[in-house]
Amino acid sequence: MNPFKYEKAASLSGAITAVQRPGGVYLGGGTNLIDLWKYGITHPDKMVDLNGLNELKSITELPDGGVRLGALVSNNTTAYHPLILERYPLLSRTILAGATAQIRNSATNGGNLLQRTRCYYFYDPDSPCNKRNPGSGCPAINGHNRLHAILGHSDSCIATFPSDMCVALAALEARVRVSGPDGERTIEFTDFHRLPGDKPELDNNLGQHELITAIDLPANGFADNYSYLKLRDRNSYAFALVSVATGLSIQDGLIREARIALGGVAHIPWRLTAAEAELRGKEPTEANFATAADIILAGASGFEHNSFKIELARRAIIRNGMMALDPASQRPGAQPSL
């Protein structure tokens, strides 16, 4: 809740220049940053407002058949965009299962990737937390850990990444375009977020002062057979305990290609290509989805309050596979159907 300077960026390069000072941060929708600032979890010295950068505010078709999502386009605009509804309905459903209409109107696509964890202890500046205050300890391991990871956690952090949208982006193999002081580069979605390891303070592999300019979606949007299932402590306005994004390409009754990504279970959107490979050429049945689920969850381990998520994730993967066969059955808020 400290005072900070504010500057409205007039150009991308201007933004990158303006942010280069200690405590300089980019401001997109603000829905997470302003919250963290109010709690005294981040102490920005200067906020560089990107909202004037019109070049980051469009959704356009790419020559390779894909679609580019501008980083400053709001989550809701993206979810309701005709191109997305038609070709990437999985992404649309996934976005609409996150947060609330009000937040989605402000929250940006770029910002969605940069959300911080919702771990209770991270959010309380008076508690120890290795992510917020490296070396101070992790009270979640022996405390309340219902929201926490069952995959890829470390001795120093068991936090989860809270985004829904990113679960679909992981499944769709999106690529993240970034700009920074050293120029532009593209990061594969699977390489964007990182596991906590012994540096839980780092959520992702974005370089200092780099900013996301766009997210590129490949041509295949799995628009015929897809589903997002979000399991949480209430039917809306809650973070996922377990979520699953599934996209299937089916030909002659057999799975040609499958994508399965999980949310709410790890420090990153969790995707295991080996499990997807296992489904290739198989029939889309509960038994086959169960096999894939077992592969994905083989290394899972839980804590006092979240071990149930291992079995829940398994069942969610199976159900969501079946839901993907009948996208029309799906209900608002990515609630279970069938």
């Binding site: 919702r118 309380d124 039917n235 973070f239």
Partner: peptide, 16 residues
């Protein structure tokens, strides 16, 4: 207490 906000202290929403 640790879930001391309306995000994690869950009261019913309209969808409930």
């Amino acid at each position: 207490y640790v879930n001391t906000d309306l995000g994690e202290y869950h009261i019913p929403v309209h969808a409930d």
